[in-house]
Amino acid sequence: MIQALADGILTGAIIALGAIGVTFTLGIMRFANFAHSELLTWGAYIALVVVAFAGPGTPTGPLSFGWQLLAAALVAAVLTGFAAWAVDVLVFRRLRRRGALPLTMVFAAFGAALVMRHLIVLIWGHESRYYTRELQLAVELLPGARMLPDQIFILGLALAAMIVLHAFLAWSRTGIAMRAMAESPALAQVCGVEVDAVVRLTWIISGALAAFAGVFTGLTPQLHPEIGFNLLLSLFAAAILGGTGSLAGAVVGGFLVGLGENLSLLVISPGYKGAMPFLLLLVILIVRPQGIFGDKA
């Protein structure tokens, strides 16, 4: 029970990181970006390239990796952020300018996802890759709850990223502009928000967080071309559960999905685990159709 709770929180932290980008594109760009999961994959593989040059570093303290992997994650975050923006310039911006329907964007995203995922296959192949070959033993944090030091570190880092992002959205001018866009693009534009700049920033932040989520997923324990794709459904369930466009919603949604997946196995067969996020979602949407933190449209 306690172990399942701990597992749920750890899974939830990574889902939350990825779901933030999904919720932003849903809120600000107004479409479901199914290519988002591929940003996780690209982030993870970019970090792999850096690690290949710098090495994962000597394990620091109880962790299985050194500062090199963190540096790699940072490089990956920056590059993936720009990659996300590049995909927007190549595909989504063109579609927006032609007045495409949101659904057209969704399918363009599907197409882009196929291309991005199989480019990884072409470059790196299908084989699993590893940042580090170390295996950690879990420490008993609470009676009956074992966690890996890496995972505790990741949880801390993910929470820190979320807090920084929250502060940015709450207090910085650009952050406020982003929130205004999510509320009402037309109104924001009238108030002098530079739409292009906000869109660009949204992609960069979404991509960067996706890269972190990708690297963290790759740490436990392997990378393969479908690493992001396998998380896609959880990301969307989390974003919609929390209410689109809401940072707090994505974070809470992420943790709920993580907990739901892990706790549900106490009562049902693992064969049905994949349905859990959706059943949770269905229940919440019936009670609150706009999601937990969503505004009533």
């Binding site: 063109r94 495409a100 363009a108 480019l119 072409l122």
Partner: peptide
């Protein structure tokens, strides 16, 4: 590799159709 390229082509075609005939 050919199979991977096939899927990439499917994705590209989809994007192109949507771009030019939204």
């Amino acid at each position: 590799q050919g199979a991977a390229i096939q899927v990439i082509l499917i994705g590209l075609l989809l994007v192109l159709v949507l771009l030019f005939r939204p």
